[in-house]
């Protein structure tokens, strides 16, 4: 699917997608080891889905890529530049779609989207209007422009958050649990949006999720994080017949009332 005709309001110059490399990344919060020597790389222009149970360190890893968390040891680079350095955010446009949306509650949807181009003065007010309306239109959100974020439903908030990221014309797009708390149809819609955005804007995409359908549906490669360590990494197709029993159980958990899992959980 190409979208070159509707691309016009965004910058004419193609900025290339960037690669991400994570080398032996460890992160401790006090005594708690959240990430243990995680190493992998994401190629420019691919969709990489990072899966794992709740509390496995997926979101923390994502925050390292945008520089919101600093590594205890190891290194994260985006386009070869250290993600922990502030200058990297000036050189590489990265957009993170937060799990909660993290929309600015004091601003209308329109102003939420217009904040980035206004602050960075990428266009005049008319140009910004065109960009914002274009992004809203891509996600079928034109009607919400004047609304406040508190008036939106959960699915709409996520779409507005994605639209706000699109306005940045990012080279790297990160999604934190984009389908959590959504009904199955809306989850599928969000997956379609992620794939479409990647296709149209050729942006490197990293999605943190624990949703199987999303991974099988749109991922080029999937990594599985468990207990802070990467236990599986490979093309999405490989996961249909996983070798590792932990991965198999994570992807196809059977409800077993005779031997309930919660009785064996570590505390």
């Amino acid at each position: 699917m190409t979208c070159s005709s509707t691309r016009s309001p965004f910058s004419q110059v193609e900025t290339p997608a960037v690669g991400v490399s994570i080398e032996k990344l460890s992160k401790d919060f006090g005594r708690l080891k959240v990430l243990k020597e995680v190493t992998f790389a994401v190629e420019p222009g691919e969709i990489f889905v990072l899966m794992g149970p709740s509390g496995s360190g997926k979101s923390v890893l994502l925050k390292h890529i945008v520089g919101l968390e600093l590594p205890t040891s190891g290194r994260v680079t985006v386009d070869g530049k250290d993600a922990a350095a502030e200058e990297t955010r000036e050189q590489v446009r990265m957009a993170l779609v937060f799990q909660s949306g993290a929309l600015f509650n004091s601003l209308s949807v329109y102003d939420n989207l217009a904040l980035y181009p206004r602050e960075h003065r990428v266009a005049n007010e008319a140009g910004i209007r065109e960009k914002v309306m274009h992004a809203l239109q891509i996600l079928s959100l034109e009607g919400t422009a004047r609304k406040s974020p508190s008036e939106l439903s959960g699915g709409m908030k996520k779409r507005v958050a994605i639209a706000r990221a699109l306005v940045m014309e990012p080279q790297l797009m990160l999604y934190d649990e984009p389908t959590s708390e959504l009904d199955p149809v809306m989850s599928a819609t969000i997956s379609e949006i992620i794939a479409t955005v990647k296709e149209d804007y050729h942006v490197t995409t990293i999605v943190v999720s624990h949703e199987r359908e999303l991974a099988f549906g749109i991922a080029d490669r999937v990594g599985i994080l468990m207990g802070g360590a990467l236990i599986s990494l490979g093309p999405a197709a490989e996961l249909r017949s996983p070798q590792d029993p932990r991965v198999a159980e994570f992807l196809n958990p059977k409800i077993d009332l005779q031997h309930p899992r919660f009785k064996n959980l570590e505390t």
């Binding site: 945008v66 955010r89 993290a102 929309l103 602050e119 960075h120």
Partner: peptide, 16 residues
């Protein structure tokens, strides 16, 4: 509340 609801983090990632 902006910090707790990640609005500050969003600003930082937007390089604002």
């Amino acid at each position: 509340s902006m910090k707790v609801y990640q609005e500050i983090d969003a600003l930082v990632t937007m390089n604002i």
